[in-house]
Nucleic acid binder design. Structure first.
Length: 101
DNA sequence: TATCTGACGATAG
DNA sequence: CCTATCGCCAGAT
């Protein structure tokens, strides 16, 4: 069957598996998808993704939110328990223990 | 098939 | 804080 590349499917699967209140970085998602260097490709996939995919749970490595959708992104994150500020994530509940930095 | 673009990451200045 | 550069990958034209 035609598949939109294993990557896009992998990314969709990973992002859809992110628990609420948790945020992962593009690099983390890319690594989970099978390519730790495909952070850029992940962003591309998310931009092409539609509803059903919690793209807002994916943020940049430096905590930066999506350019152009900072309001939307921040609103959704805060709705799940993530605090944001100035287009940037504040409190992050990473899927990895340890806390934030 | 080639080229450009982009919701990236890291380093350097 | 900012911009600039390199490296990486997938999608669109």
């Amino acid at each position: 069957m035609s598949r939109p590349s294993d990557f896009s499917t992998r990314v969709h699967r990973v992002v859809a598996g992110i628990p609420a209140g948790t945020v992962l970085t593009y690099g983390e998602v890319a690594a989970e998808a099978g390519s730790p260097r495909a952070a850029r490709a992940v962003g591309h996939v998310l931009s092409a993704a539609g509803e059903g995919l919690p793209w807002w749970r994916v943020v940049a490595a430096d905590g930066r939110l999506v350019p152009g959708l900072e309001e939307e992104h921040a609103a959704r994150l805060q709705d799940e328990g993530v605090t944001c500020g100035h287009g940037r994530v504040r409190t992050v509940r990473r899927h990895r223990a340890g806390g934030d930095r």
